[in-house]
């Protein structure tokens, strides 16, 4: 019945005619496009007229003082928070505001939260196995079999995250940094097009930070990566382009040097934090 009703509706493209998993269309450049997005919580504008474009394959760092709206922005992209006004497009085909969280995740937007949560009683390999895209209903999971292609994919991600030697170790005995990389690896198993990474180097040692920088810059190109980070040294070491958020909108955008020279940025953020460093 529903299909008949849909057919009678002649002024739109029928959902069932469009392929269910239509690929993300990035022929026109950006993979993520946000225009005039505004969100307010009880009158407080957490995001105020935000305009942001991320190109396909780009590695972008987003910085800003506390309360600048970084987390809210991530929440909007992943569908956790709905904006009051504005447009959010993934490629030029998918309107993210019409989709729910699981749909957006399936489309290829992966998000790494600040605190790493890996399955400590399972090995690194098994953690990646569970994260792999597959039929996740009960009986298919019971009878699931690992094939060569899956094994190759896990090996590939182990290689990327530098955890080859730890593949058979329990995730619970990994160091803090290794857990963060494993978590990024678990996101990579789902072959995301866009990776949102929240404060990846908090609590890491110098060496771990270097490794993380290598990992993230290595990922860019194959997928787009958006990093929200407080550590200015780390941002300087990886970013080609930096966006500074302030009070819910973009204050400045450009290379690290350009941004650092901007007097408004120095006033609200860099000045204080440089002094603090």
């Amino acid at each position: 019945m529903n299909i008949l009703k849909e057919l009678a509706n002649r002024d739109r493209v029928f959902d069932f005619l469009a392929p269910a998993d239509s690929p993300v269309d990035v022929r026109h450049g950006p993979i993520l496009y946000m225009e005039d997005v505004t969100v307010s919580f009880d009158g407080f504008k957490a995001i105020d007229n935000l305009n942001l474009t991320i190109d396909d394959g780009e590695l972008r760092c987003i910085i800003g003082p506390n309360g600048a709206g970084k987390t809210t922005m991530m929440d909007i992209i992943t569908g956790k928070t709905r904006p009051d006004t504005g447009k959010v497009w993934f490629g030029s085909r998918h309107d993210l505001l019409t989709m729910n969280e699981p749909e957006i995740a399936r489309l290829g937007i992966g998000r790494k939260f600040q605190k790493p949560t890996v399955f400590e009683a399972l090995t690194v390999f098994e953690n990646l196995e569970l994260a792999m895209s597959a039929d996740k209903r009960v009986l298919p999971t019971l009878t699931a079999r690992m094939n060569g292609a899956m094994r190759d994919r896990i090996d590939e991600v182990l290689e990327m995250t530098g955890l080859v030697a730890q593949r058979r170790q329990l995730a619970g005995i990994l160091s803090h940094g290794q857990k963060q990389w494993l978590e990024i690896g678990m996101l990579l198993m789902q072959r995301p097009r866009l990776l949102l990474v929240d404060e990846p180097v908090a609590g890491m040692t110098e060496q771990e930070m270097e490794r993380t920088a290598e990992l993230l810059t290595g990922l860019a190109g194959k997928q787009s990566v958006v990093v929200v980070e407080h550590d200015m040294g780390f941002v300087r070491s990886i970013a080609r382009k930096v966006t500074v958020l302030h009070q819910g909108s973009v204050l400045a955008e450009g290379s690290m040097d350009q941004v650092q020279g901007d007097p408004r940025v120095i006033e609200v953020y860099l000045g204080e934090s440089e002094e603090a460093v």
Partner: peptide
């Protein structure tokens, strides 16, 4: 011993993450 068993252990330790 199946993948489902590993999902069980995963949900035992970190249900929300699973």
């Amino acid at each position: 011993g199946s993948k489902l068993g590993r999902v069980c252990v995963a949900s035992r330790d970190a249900e929300a993450r699973t």
